[in-house]
């Protein structure tokens, strides 16, 4: 909504916006303990004081694979801490840019944003720092498998 505070971050080379209300803090990411057999978009867990955060690799959570296209972007040493359903997550992004205010409502663009982005994006939002893709936190945290299930169900 107009006037809402947004955290602007780069994910997979695109400018994205998260509601500042969702973002509890921005932390320096420490050692990440990997979780064997966990979905690939979960990078591991890291400690924040006495709390364990699940580290989400946002690029993979969107459904972009690693390898050639994954190494194109640098990863910020900072991560945005969010909570969803009582669990805390640290979002690993390319970079955290700014906190700014939204200039209008999130709106659609003709042609959509592409399959990976459409799943997690509520729309395009104009901000003081330029246009950004407004992200739906719950959809992002659901991971790329959620989309695949939906597609399978539709087929």
């Amino acid at each position: 909504m107009t006037g809402d505070l947004l955290v602007i971050a780069q994910i997979a080379g695109r400018r994205c916006a998260l509601s500042a209300l969702d973002v509890k803090s921005v932390i320096e990411i420490g050692t990440i303990t990997p979780i064997p057999r966990a979905p690939v978009w979960i990078a591991g867990i890291t400690a924040l004081r006495s709390q364990a955060l699940t580290v989400i690799d946002c690029r993979r959570a969107l459904g972009f694979g690693g390898g050639s296209d994954g190494t194109d972007w640098a990863t910020d040493h900072r991560a945005a801490v969010v909570t969803d359903g009582g669990h805390s997550y640290a979002l690993m992004v390319d970079s955290i840019e700014d906190i700014t205010t939204a200039a209008d409502e999130a709106g659609q663009v003709p042609g959509g944003f592409g399959p990976e982005w459409s799943r997690v994006a509520t729309g395009m939002v104009e901000t003081m720092a330029g246009p950004a893709l407004m992200l739906d936190l719950a959809a992002l945290l659901a991971g790329p498998e959620a989309a695949r299930h939906e597609i399978e169900a539709a087929v």
Partner: peptide
């Protein structure tokens, strides 16, 4: 401490600890 549901789904972990 509890783990995120996506991690719990693997069925291997009951929680995390420091």
């Amino acid at each position: 401490k509890p783990l995120a549901p996506a991690v719990m789904r693997s069925g291997l972990y009951a929680g995390s600890t420091l």
